[in-house]
Design a protein around this nucleic acid. Structure first.
Lengths: 331, 331
DNA sequence: TCTCCTTGTGGAATCGGTTTCATAAAATAT
DNA sequence: ATATTTTATGAAACCGATTCCACAAGGAGA
C-alpha cells in the first residue's frame, strides 16, 4: 500500500487530476508542476493501483491462459512463450488448467465474466465449438490453440503438421533413401492424419510410388512404434528409412531396430515428430520435427494484444514446424 | 460484459444494496426478494466484477508466482501444485519469470504495488535478503521457495535435502552394500552441501567409517558424473554402491559403469537425486530421491492464503523428499 | 394505545483511479 | 486596451462493487 493518488495530490499541493495527468504522461502539465509531482511520487514510493485503473478503464492488462495440463514439456513451453510475449507488451498472465471439478464454462466464465482478464487463450482438444460460440457473443478476445474453429469467429493458432511431415520425408528422400516407410498415429487423430498426408504428399512430389505395405499403424506410444517397426523389418523388402508420426513411436522403433542387431542410421534411418526432450538423449540422437510451442504461446498473446489495440489480426494463424537434424537420419 | 449490479437492481426493482446482499449470501433479505433477484441475475447472466470487488475489498483473490524459468520440469511442477492449491482456495495464479530486461524489484513492485496480487511466491536462488527486507516492510504476504531467509520474517518453504540424501544412503546400507561412495555437487552450492551432509550422517549412524576416497567431486552435470565414476572405478578398492548428488551425474556415472562392461546394479548400485524425467527412462531405471516440487507450490499457496485469512502459519516449512525405488539400487 | 425491538430495505459514502467540462490565468491577436 | 485564443488546473461525475447508517413496517411488551 504505497499511498494513493490523493495523498500524492495533497502532498504536492495539486489536484488528483493533475497527478493523474502526470502519471499518464499527459503533456498538458507545466514542467515545474510535473517535477514537483514526480518528486512526491518518488518520495512516497507511490504506485498507481492497477485495480482502480482497471475499474475505470475496463482493462486489466491481464490475459488468461488455460491449458489442459501445466507440468508437461509442451505446455510449459507454451506458457513460457506466452509469458515472454506478455512481458513485452506489458501484460500479465493468469494461468490455469481446466480442472475436473469445475466445468470449462465455470472457469472461463469467472475469468471473463468477472473481468479479471482482457482476453483468453484456450487450449483444449475437447473444446466444443458450441461452447466457444457462446463466449464469442461476448466479443471477448479469445484465441484457441491447436484447433480449428468452424462456427464462430474466434481466432486460432495451429501448427502446420502437414508441412512438418512433408519436410521430414523430403529430408529422407534427399538423403537418397529409396524405401521410405511411415508409422502413423491413430486414425481418428487429426494430427496423425495431417502427418500422414504430409508423408504422402512428399512421396508424390518426388515421384516415389506409394507402397501400402510401408504405411503401418501405430498408437502414438513407444510400444506401438516398436511393434510397427518389427512388422516393417519382417517385410520381404524392408524399408531403408522410417518416418514415425511422433517421437515416442520413433524411439520405440529405434529400440526394435537395435534389438535386431541393426544399426541406425546405417541400416535404417529414422525421423520422428514432436521433438520431445528425450529425442536428443537417445542414441543416436533422434532427428525429428520440432513443434513451435513457444511460438504458439507467444503468437496467441500477440494476437490477443493486437485485438485489444484494435488492430485487425488475422483469424487463423499457422505456425511452421522446424526440422531438427540430429543423427538418426544419417546426417 | 454481463451487466452490472445496477442493472440487476433496476430489473428486480430493488436497490443495489439488496442485490449485493443476495450475491454475498447475507441472510437479511426476505426469501421472495432473494428469489426475484436470483432470477434476474440468471436472466441477465450477471457475474459480479472481480475488479470492482477488488477495489472495495482490497483483495484480488490472486497470487503472484515468480519463477526463474517456466519451461522446466521442476518449475512447471511447482506451477501445477500452486495452481491446484489456488483453485481449491478459489484463488487465481499470476505467473511470471524474472526477466533479464527488468529488475526483480520492478516486477515485484508492479505486482504488489499495483495491487494486482494479494500475495507473492518467489523462487529465485539469487534473491538477496536485503531485497526481501524492503518488501517485507509492506507487510505483504510473501513466501520464498527453496531458500532460507535470515533477516526478515518472510515465510519460506524449503526441501529437506539432507533427509533425502540420508534416506537414499540408508537404503543402500540396508541393501547390504559395504563400500558406499558419493559423487557430490559443487562445493559452493547449498543443496550439494546438504546432500553430502546427509550422506555422511547416514554412514555415521550406521557405524560405517567414512572413506575420503569415496567422496568425489562432480559438477552437477552428466560429464562430471561420468568422470567421477571413472575415478571411483580406478580405485584399488572400488565402491559397490554410489550415491550421486543429482540425477544427471548419476546417469553419467551409469554410462561410465556400462562402458567398463560392468553391470548395474550387480557390480555397482547407483542412486541419484532429483527424480528428473529421464531417471525412469534410462536402463536400468534409476532409483532416486524425488523432490516434492508439486507440494512446494501447493504449500506456498496455502501458506499465503492462510496468511490472508489471518491464520498464523509457520514461518518455515520443510518438505520431505521421497525415495523412488526403481532398479539401479538392486531392488 | 403507545413505545421498543426486529427485520428488511435503500441512500449515500467509499475504494482509487480517469475523464469531461468549466474556469482562471496567460499569451496572442486586433 | 480590449477581445480572443491557448494553456494549466481543478471540481465533479463515473467505473462497479461493499457497507455504514438511517428508516419504515410489523410484532411484542407494557
Amino acid at each position: 500500500m504505497p499511498g494513493t493518488i490523493k495523498e500524492v495530490a495533497e502532498r504536492a499541493g495539486v489536484s488528483i487530476t493533475t497527478v493523474s495527468r502526470v502519471i499518464n504522461g499527459n503533456p498538458k502539465v507545466r514542467q515545474d508542476t510535473r517535477e514537483r509531482v514526480y518528486e512526491v511520487i518518488k518520495e512516497l514510493g507511490y504506485v498507481p493501483s492497477a485495480i482502480a485503473r482497471g475499474l475505470t478503464l475496463g482493462r486489466t492488462h491481464t490475459i488468461g491462459l488455460i491449458l489442459p495440463e501445466i507440468a508437461d514439456g509442451f505446455f510449459s513451453q507454451v506458457i513460457r512463450g506466452a509469458d515472454e510475449a506478455a512481458v513485452r507488451q506489458n501484460f500479465h498472465l493468469l494461468v490455469s488448467t481446466f480442472h475436473s471439478h469445475r466445468s470449462d464454462e465455470e472457469l472461463s466464465f469467472r475469468l471473463l465474466g468477472e473481468g479479471r482478464v482482457d482476453g483468453l487463450i484456450l487450449m483444449d482438444p475437447t473444446l466444443g465449438d458450441d461452447f466457444l460460440m457462446e463466449f464469442h457473443r461476448s466479443s471477448f478476445p479469445i484465441v484457441v490453440l491447436c484447433k480449428k474453429i468452424k462456427y464462430t469467429n474466434c481466432k486460432y493458432v495451429v501448427i502446420d503438421d502437414l508441412q512438418g511431415a512433408y519436410q521430414a520425408v523430403v529430408h529422407l528422400i534427399k538423403h537418397g533413401y529409396k524405401r521410405i516407410a511411415t508409422i502413423r498415429g491413430p486414425l481418428d487423430n487429426y494430427d496423425a492424419f495431417q502427418r500422414l498426408a504430409g508423408y504422402k504428399s512428399a512421396l508424390k512430389d518426388y515421384n516415389i510410388k506409394l507402397n501400402p505395405e510401408y504405411i503401418v499403424d501405430g498408437n502414438f506410444q513407444w510400444e506401438g512404434g516398436e511393434s510397427a517397426m518389427h512388422i516393417l523389418l519382417d517385410l520381404v523388402q524392408p524399408p531403408d528409412a522410417v518416418f514415425a508420426a511422433n517421437d515416442p513411436m520413433a524411439i520405440g522403433a529405434m529400440e526394435a531396430v537395435k534389438k535386431r542387431g541393426l544399426s541406425i542410421p546405417k541400416d535404417m534411418a529414422i525421423i520422428g515428430f514432436d521433438d520431445i526432450e528425450l529425442a536428443r538423449l537417445v542414441t543416436p540422437p533422434l532427428t525429428t520435427v520440432h513443434l513451435p510451442m513457444y511460438e504458439l504461446g507467444a503468437m496467441a498473446v500477440e494476437s490477443i494484444t493486437g485485438m485489444l489495440k484494435g488492430k485487425s489480426t488475422r483469424r487463423k494463424n499457422i505456425l511452421k514446424t522446424g526440422l531438427v537434424i540430429r543423427k538418426s537420419c544419417g546426417c
